[in-house]
Design a binder for these strands. Sequence first.
DNA 1: TAGTGGTCTAGACCACTTC
DNA 2: AAGTGGTCTAGACCACTAA
Lengths: 259, 259
Amino acid sequence: MHPDPQSPAQRIVADLRDDIAAGRLPAGAKLPSVRDLAERYDVSRSTASKALILLRNEGLVVTRHGSGAYVREAYPIRRLGPDRYARHRWEQTGVEAFATGVPGSDSTRQQGHQTQDVSLVTADEPVAAALGVEVGSPVYERARVMTRDGIPTHTMTSYYLPAHVEGTPLVDPSPGIAGPGGGFRVLADRGLPPHEITEDIQARMPTAEETLLLDLPSGEPVVEVRRVTRTAGGQVVEYARGVHAASRFVWSYTYAIPD
Amino acid sequence: MHPDPQSPAQRIVADLRDDIAAGRLPAGAKLPSVRDLAERYDVSRSTASKALILLRNEGLVVTRHGSGAYVREAYPIRRLGPDRYARHRWEQTGVEAFATGVPGSDSTRQQGHQTQDVSLVTADEPVAAALGVEVGSPVYERARVMTRDGIPTHTMTSYYLPAHVEGTPLVDPSPGIAGPGGGFRVLADRGLPPHEITEDIQARMPTAEETLLLDLPSGEPVVEVRRVTRTAGGQVVEYARGVHAASRFVWSYTYAIPD
DNA sequence: TAGTGGTCTAGACCACTTC
DNA sequence: AAGTGGTCTAGACCACTAA
């Protein structure tokens, strides 16, 4: 595989990796320039540049074109557990329950925000299977991109049966409905209160599209979450797919050991 | 970022990606050689080679040095849910319960296997915090590498308090103890039956070490799982860390929506 | 404007696989 | 021996950033 146990590029990578691990290059610190490295290690600029690419692919370094390469900052990590779906977050009586995240309350806006895009689409295979309809059946798609401090963190796209949401504010996209939990609230109002959730979690590298949409640094994996929401009667009322920038989330589950 | 909306390398990547998505290049199919691509697209070999590297980093392609580049085969994906810890899998009366995975029963050996390495170490910060001891305290470490069909799939390293496992077969490493579930069984025998689990799940790119250990293809992320196991009384009896090749697993959790 | 990372070339050489 | 991917060089040029 390698001409040497330590090829020139690998030597640079190893050295810089050590510097980062030892704290000699703390988070945010600027790395030596490509031309610097090339001279120091007596290699071509291409080789020095490749070393940075390798570090970037490991997620240790981010490069800013025209500016330099920097040790990657650790983002605050959000912990996702069942609590984020808790009933008290969406089961409220007033219409004002939807006011969270609405334009106007600037404090909440700067923290987290989401776009929303509702349309009637035809069900693909996973959606059809989850909602129990034929492939190609019409379903409502509610696509959102969540941002935090102006930076996109994840997408979440929900699918509903038309019979469940037709005529509700969910499919009549007004700005007020965009608040988190709005979906569950609407289903509950329709007599279909969500009761049980199954989440499937899987990590992979992003598609080219996702890299653009989430503005992912090269070498950042994504976590795909697929969620099926059911009523107490076992009726499926929502299927959702989300794609999360991996470095910003940890999922946490607590459960009793089954028999 | 790009000299062109579509740089030469990106054009090759896009074309090959389309061929793969459309099934013109099915899983396992051999891609055109670097020299082929260079000639077809009228680019240098370096550029054609870079295109393959990009596809590899996306996880779409694997390269075999000296042989060629191939569309990556989809591995069978194992679904991990709470059931894998189910009581009936480890709560048995005979000592022969440990026989699973023991040398001799070849059918089970070829499916899945694990190495084991037990030693007394000093607790680092996360281990100490989880087990409720001081950093630097002695704890038993039980490190395993799991393989499937001869290919490593994940590591799992458990930590125990010496008072809980001293004198048990867990820390007297004999071949027979290596069966999965052996740890829970031993704790139960000691009067500390596991009852509740908290799992934290996070994805990231592998370290250089993990890439070697798990024989990861370039561009494959890993999922790190941290597990805390408690008795019905809330006493922590095990802390474990695992690193999984992301493409081989999906985690699945079902739970009632909390209030 | 000077310095930075990113891409590309044309060619050399190496390591590995396959026949 | 022929064909493959992998690495590297020396240099060119481009695009972006910051003073």
